[in-house]
Amino acid sequence: MPFYELTLPVTAVQAKSLERILTDLGAVGITYQDDSNVPIYEPLPGETPLWDFLKLTALFDNEPSANGAFQLLSIHLPGVEILRTQLQDEIWERMWMQHFKPMRFGKNSWVIPDGYEPLDADAINLFLDPGLAFGTGTHATTALCLSWLDQHDVRGQHWVDFGCGSGILAIMALLQGAERVTCVDIDNQAIEATVQNARKNNVEQGIEIVSPEAVSEILHKDGILANILAAPLLQLRPIFADMLKPGGQIVLSGILAEQQKQLSREYAQSFIDIECENLEDWVRVSARLPR
């Protein structure tokens, strides 16, 4: 069964009302893209920023609904160019997984996607179905964190995965011997993927979910994994410091090479032993609180 897309330029003011109208007209999904080349970085918990000018794409699972929506939009938005596209029936969110194959991180850690068997049965093998959540190990930012976990002893510790995505970092920490990992994400889909993947790896008993609104309750932890982006990381430094016990560690990723110095200077206000490692255009920053 084919799907149908309508794409049109809108303002942020128009977006919410049009979203409700299109949903009522049968849209099964609505997405936004920047239409003015203004970046929005990873938001802080509770934030839902939106561009001033954007492209709205509405997905319909039948042609009559798409045509009806097109006609209504044409009447109420005269002069606005509305692009109509017919899509073949595909599981779009999974098509990219044909390029996702078993990968090794460090000396002894593997990520094994669904449909593959471990290449080394004696290694630490993490079985993963990311679904729609970010985090497979294919991106340099995730790879940098997985390599850090392969090289450091987290046995018996309680860590935080801030922005857990697919849960890949939390699960790897548990497979490496961590006792517990507290997971935080603003996306409910990410939390669902984390729980499912933890169950797949038989470590769900080690996962604790905390809502973004309750992060102030996270205290006295051994370490924090945060693979998000530099902008929120800069703001989160005092919050992260409060989450950790003396000597607690941070492992930060999602940082572009040109952002490394600024972020390192910010974290030097609370942390010591700052170390950086590059992969492609990305940087991992690790450090610890003084004891």
Rank of each mutant, 00 (worst) to 15 (best):
P130F: 14
G131A: 06
L87V: 00
D89V: 02
V111G: 01
I168C: 07
W92I: 04
T142H: 05
A198H: 04
A66H: 11
W110K: 11
L119W: 07
H99C: 13
S109K: 03
I191F: 04
I171M: 13
A66D: 13
T141I: 09
L54M: 15
T136E: 11
N197P: 02
I75Q: 08
L119F: 06
W148P: 01
M97Q: 12
E90N: 08
T57N: 11
A58W: 10
L144P: 00
P78Y: 03
W148V: 02
L126S: 11
N197G: 08
L59P: 03
E81Y: 02
G135K: 06
I124Y: 12
R84G: 01
N197T: 14
K55E: 10
K101D: 01
G106P: 06
N125Q: 09
A69M: 05
D61R: 12
M97H: 08
D120L: 09
R84V: 02
I82S: 04
H139E: 05
G177N: 01
W92G: 04
W159H: 00
G156W: 11
N67G: 15
L54P: 01
L73P: 00
T138F: 14
L169K: 08
A190H: 05
I112N: 02
F70P: 04
I112Y: 03
F100D: 10
L175A: 11
I186K: 06
D187P: 01
V195E: 14
P130N: 14
F60G: 13
L128T: 10
D153W: 13
W110P: 02
E192M: 11
